[in-house]
Amino acid sequence: MPQDVLPETSSLWIFGYGSLVWNPDFSYSRSKVGHIQGYKRRFWHGDNFYRGDKDTPGRVVTLVEDLEACTWGVAYEVTGSQVEESLKYLNVREATRGGYVSKMVEFTPRDQDEDASLALVYIATSDNPIYLGPASPAEIAAQIAICRGHTGHNIEYLLRLADFMRMYCPEVEDDHLFSIEAAALALVI
């Protein structure tokens, strides 16, 4: 990750909107549910390691710029030695294996008494070789239903993300996520 992306600090917030919401897999000091503005979550990125393979890439989420949208997730604060350790881990998980780039964005916590802060986020862009792009909910669900990678079935990723949204953001309607979930469940039940 380019060092000029990060501010000079002994603490850093990292925003997760996909598997990081249930599996950060790095040490952190505290976490907050909240959102970022100007992006929508989409199952447009391919995954040929964690939730798919080279022959049948899975589909995972990325962020697409949309000034009217907001994306809910979890921000994790890492402090002291956690900063370097988490970035080392995430650069392999998200950048090297996942094809994501990093960016600093404004994160707004769900608790309105808390101030917004800058957070690091990983985003896969359309110029990435494993970027799959838009498809209908039925097409995305059909692909998710058959894929499996090193960390498990792609449908588990989808269902865990939908469960997170229902549990922690019950008032938020994520039509893209929930329509893919419904289509995938219709295929496997």
Score class of each variant (00 low, 15 high):
P57N: 12
W72F: 14
E156A: 12
P109S: 12
L6F: 09
R160A: 09
V60M: 15
S117P: 00
W22G: 04
G98A: 06
E85Q: 13
R110V: 01
I123H: 15
V92P: 02
Q37L: 02
D53E: 09
P170V: 03
A162I: 02
D55W: 00
A183F: 03
S27A: 15
G16W: 08
I155D: 14
A116R: 02
M1S: 09
S31K: 15
G16Y: 04
R42E: 13
A145C: 10
K40E: 15
R42D: 12
D55V: 00
Y168G: 00
R93V: 10
C169D: 01
T125A: 00
R97H: 06
R160C: 10
C70P: 01
A186H: 09
Y89T: 06
R51A: 05
R166P: 00
A183T: 13
M1R: 09
T71W: 01
H176S: 06
H45W: 03
A186I: 00
E8M: 00
L20I: 11
Y50I: 01
V33H: 14
S86N: 04
D111W: 12
G73Y: 09
Y122N: 07
G52F: 11
G149S: 05
N154I: 05
A135G: 08
L161R: 08
A95L: 03
F26P: 12
P24I: 01
I123T: 14
E181S: 08
E114I: 06
E139H: 06
I14A: 12
P2G: 02
Y100G: 06
I144E: 10
F178N: 09
D127P: 02
S179I: 08
I140S: 15
T125M: 01
T79W: 00
G46K: 05
V64I: 15
L63F: 09
Q82D: 12
L158W: 12
L161V: 02
E85K: 07
Y100A: 13
I130Q: 15
E65F: 01
R41S: 07
T9H: 12
T79I: 08
E173N: 13
I36P: 11
E94S: 05
Y28D: 09
R110H: 13
Y28H: 15
D115V: 05
A95I: 03
M167R: 14
D127H: 08
R59A: 08
Y157G: 04
P134R: 11
Y157L: 10
T62P: 10
L87W: 08
M104S: 04
L158T: 07
L120A: 12
F49W: 10
D113V: 01
V172C: 03
Y39C: 06
I144S: 15
R148D: 02
S31M: 13
D55I: 00
G46A: 10
M167T: 15
R148W: 02
S10V: 01
F15D: 06
T108I: 12
H150N: 05
F178K: 05
D55S: 04
R97G: 00
E65P: 07
F164P: 05
V92K: 14
Y89W: 10
W22T: 03
V60D: 10
R166G: 06
E181L: 11
L187P: 08
G149Y: 04
I189N: 11
T9N: 15
Y39K: 06
G152Y: 14
I36K: 06
E84P: 00
T96C: 07
E173S: 09
L161K: 04
S11P: 02
Y157N: 07
V78S: 13
Q143L: 06
V60S: 11
R93Y: 11
K32L: 13
F164R: 11
